[in-house]
Design a protein around this nucleic acid. Sequence first.
DNA 1: ATGGGACTTCCCATTGTGGGAAGGTCAAGG
DNA 2: CCTTGACCTTCCCACAATGGGAAGTCCCAT
Lengths: 143, 143
Amino acid sequence: MTRVMTIGEAAARSGVSAKMIRHYEAIGLLSAERRANGYRSYGPQDVAVLRFIRHARDLAFPLEDVRRLLALWRDRTRASAEVKRLALSHVAALEAKAAALNAMAGSLRHLASHCAGDDRPDCPILADLEAEDGCHRQEGPER
Amino acid sequence: MTRVMTIGEAAARSGVSAKMIRHYEAIGLLSAERRANGYRSYGPQDVAVLRFIRHARDLAFPLEDVRRLLALWRDRTRASAEVKRLALSHVAALEAKAAALNAMAGSLRHLASHCAGDDRPDCPILADLEAEDGCHRQEGPER
DNA sequence: ATGGGACTTCCCATTGTGGGAAGGTCAAGG
DNA sequence: CCTTGACCTTCCCACAATGGGAAGTCCCAT
């Protein structure tokens, strides 16, 4: 059953919006057959690909990485080392970004903790934003 | 000295690129006087505003928040409570994003730790991306 | 046949930043 | 006086990934 599907059905089954399916096709992540009337046609294998893409996107792999992962996935002779390398490099990127965000959150939370937060205008947060450069923006000499 | 500056000098002194200064002007974050020849003209106060913007951007405040912060900064009758509220809500956003990134990094690192990373094609990372939904994508029922 | 829903393509918006073209301006130096 | 080079101006385009929506076509059920 459901051997062949329209884009709407493939979207529903894969969790990828029809809009994005068309986009992924436009950038060459997948291809779709066309019916006589011009409608795209998908089979179960296509849905599997779409799910793969969605899972990779859920892990915030950029689409270029998704492209490489798909190629590896399809290549039965791949070396898992290559997949692992790609994954770990992405992990590093994620962690770096998270660390940067946490650092910013930390600075700002620190500033906020010194702010009375009442009716008065005095505010160390604004004072810090206003400050000259290098005054005390970061604790240590950066990196 | 340097009471009046071109955009290039203001950029050098504030650390904001000329390109972005024009952009910030276009979206109404600041205004600039014009000389007879059409060149923008900046004073020390403008540089202070630009530095303020840059510091806020360094903390990843979105430009809409920067707009509000600037308004509060200029308003001598502001209540620091409002600044603090804005800051803490941004802190919450930063931390939420960081947590999401760390969660993704954690899942992926976990998958990678089970990947041999050798010449063989078997790879739990690809297997997971390929998996049906809800198999074991997240540990607990989300949020 | 008609109406509604799903499909097609194409354009635009987002967020923040940069690149680059085409042209005007100014100061220094020949 | 005129060139050269560095700066300024505006305007358009690009990124990454996604969504919104318009205009037109198609299919199916009434």
